[in-house]
Nucleic acid binder design. Structure first.
Lengths: 358, 358
DNA sequence: CCGTTCTTTTGGATCGATCCAATCCCAACC
DNA sequence: GGTTGGGATTGGATCGATCCAAAAGAACGG
């Protein structure tokens, strides 16, 4: 460790320059890894930096260059590991480029979301990754554009009227993930399938519902059994109870996400029933816990960390080139077969005949 | 919304000053809510700010005042909702004071931890809240002190040699929480109790172990059944299996945290056993899910959000007054009785006699 | 030896707020 | 009427890096 400055005075470029026998400008170039400086000079300056224990003052650099090497990252609910993972993904990519992130959890509050964005502007962040809170209006995206603050939406997105640039977006293909789930359940012989969860109207909900409806209709099945519930374990447990008591209960339940699916499995357990035997249950997200329930949960893997990484890369591209066209990155979402949907693909064939007899 | 600046030029204090017919200095005072300015002037300036759509440039302010109104927040694992909650707590308090936080998940990597702290110093944060990664040496705390960067440790803490100022710390009273758990289990008649989890040597582990050992010894019981395992669901499930197969299996298991406890319950379920009936199981943290397992989990509530809030307040005090004495805030941790430990306090009395006959 | 080109280095101006000592204003008091 | 005092306001210097145009130095051919 270099010896700390003996006095309380903070060292500046000038001190380093004096010690290395060059000008301030040269030191500045070295610190920014400019190819302009000669190797010999570079080493000398580096030596001086280490010897003095000089600390770069990013604030001063910002003022002059109006580049802060910081970004804002807004997620709706940090205590949901799904979003936390995505935040980690963003951070890993940004960090490698020398950026640091302001992270905040909006808790689905539009007011907090906007306040934070305003503050990010004051801070002069180079861009933001935004998971829009439920109910975010297109006006917000326009506002950011007005500010010329680069923004990438992640996991959810605000839809702008056609004709307007939609803006960058990175997310998972919820729609086809749910479609694939329906296909699989139908193949297993299920005809009456419920979709559980998603009271909030945002793109991630609409995509799932669309996938569900399309796939059900394709098979001529009733696509109306969609239950709007909060996205909690508790809601899952409660919903499944009333559902099973109804006059025409389903034989399978596709849940909005794994959390709801865990709740459904809990609800079944409380009634002495079991997922996979008495009701096929599936989720979305493939949280680490999904493989560890009893029975393990069939679910759609949406790889939040990857989504985070892609959002970050997208934002970096946008910062480098603000005028480029909007880009949408939709990562594939694959169905991960486990026991909670009754039977895995390999074992499905013999059962299909049996199911047809129902 | 104020009309955006018509040209690309960024507005400065000077523009606002001109419009309001005052000097730059006065505008600056208004923006900082100084009591020095007359009410009439203040309103006029505020009007000009709104009319022009002026955006405060915090970077410039920082350079001059060397106060950034930012802090760094380092947690070990953001995808653990426990830490995420604590981060939210920190953020809420800081936000109310006009601060924003750089948040990073170190993933228990000492190298990442140090790199991030260095970057925080360059950014000029006013302070950091640190959950030290496992294996963090006292040298790190000394380094921060050398940098005169205010630091509050949270949830875990590095122990410095006696005589040295220990530094600020906020956390939960794991020790007495675990002691209380032991007391309760003993009251229920358990004699052979295992402690599961905690391979990593940090203060939060040591405290739990100490609480366990003390309480067991106090009752003349064997305090040696401590199983070091990773802090995951999977580890909990695997550990309980081998434990039950051993020659002298325990009748109760106190788990490091709820995650491990969930794993243990899963392990029991896989063997057709049930927590609370075949083995008493308890956890620590009282995650939201703890109330929703089957059976619900008895656990020690540690209120991570509160710990976060306290850490933030502590940091604010330290920033305001760097030379004050170190402060330790240890929040009480209470045992929350649920069914997984076999029987709740109210129902315990009749069972005690029966237990004595074993 | 000079002109040309290319590489490397440089000093001064600049970014936009805050700090501070000085000034201004106006009422109150002797 | 002059002086004092306190509240309100101000102009210029300042924080520490980057930008830029220009200079210095090196290399080389004619």
């Amino acid at each position: 460790m270099p010896p700390s400055p003996p006095d309380r005075m903070r060292l500046t470029l000038k001190d380093v320059a004096a010690r290395a026998g060059v000008s301030r400008a040269t030191v500045s170039l070295v610190l920014r890894d400019s190819p302009l400086v000669a190797a010999e000079t570079r080493d000398r300056v580096r030596g001086a930096v280490d010897a003095l224990g000089y600390v770069y003052n990013r604030g001063a650099a910002t003022l002059r260059s109006s580049r802060t090497k910081t970004i804002g990252l807004l997620v709706t609910d940090l205590s949901n590991p799904f979003f936390a993972e995505m935040a980690i993904g963003v951070d890993r990519v940004m960090e490698a480029e020398g950026y640091v992130s302001f992270l905040v959890s909006t808790g689905e509050s539009l007011e907090r979301q906007e306040r934070f964005l305003r503050r990010m502007r004051e801070q002069g962040v180079d861009g933001v990754v935004l998971c829009p809170a439920t109910g975010t209006a297109p006006g917000l995206v326009r506002m950011l554009r007005e500010w010329s603050l680069p923004c990438v939406q992640a996991l959810r997105c605000v839809t702008l009227p056609p004709g307007e640039e939609p803006g960058d977006y990175a997310g998972a293909d919820y729609r086809s993930g749910v479609e694939e789930t329906v296909e699989h359940l139908v193949r297993l012989g299920h005809r009456r399938i419920a979709f559980i969860g998603g009271e909030l109207l945002h793109s991630a909900t609409r995509e799932r519902w669309a996938g569900f409806r399309d796939a059900m209709r394709r098979h001529g099945l009733d696509d109306g059994l969609i239950l709007r519930t909060p996205l909690t374990r508790r809601a899952g447990a409660e919903t499944i109870g009333s559902l099973l008591d109804s006059s025409d209960p389903p034989s399978a339940a596709i849940c909005f996400n794994d959390i709801v699916a865990f709740g459904v499995m809990l609800g079944l357990e409380r009634r002495g029933l079991r997922a996979g035997r008495d009701l096929a249950v599936t989720g979305v997200d493939d949280l680490p816990d999904a493989a560890l329930t009893e029975p393990p949960l069939t679910t759609v893997s949406t790889l939040p960390r990857l989504v985070g990484e892609e959002s970050a890369r997208l934002l970096l591209r946008r910062i480098a080139e603000p005028e480029r066209r909007s880009e949408r990155i939709v990562l594939p979402a694959r169905l991960v077969l486990r026991a909670s949907c009754g039977v895995t693909r390999q074992a499905a064939a013999p059962l299909l005949a049996q199911a047809a007899l129902r």
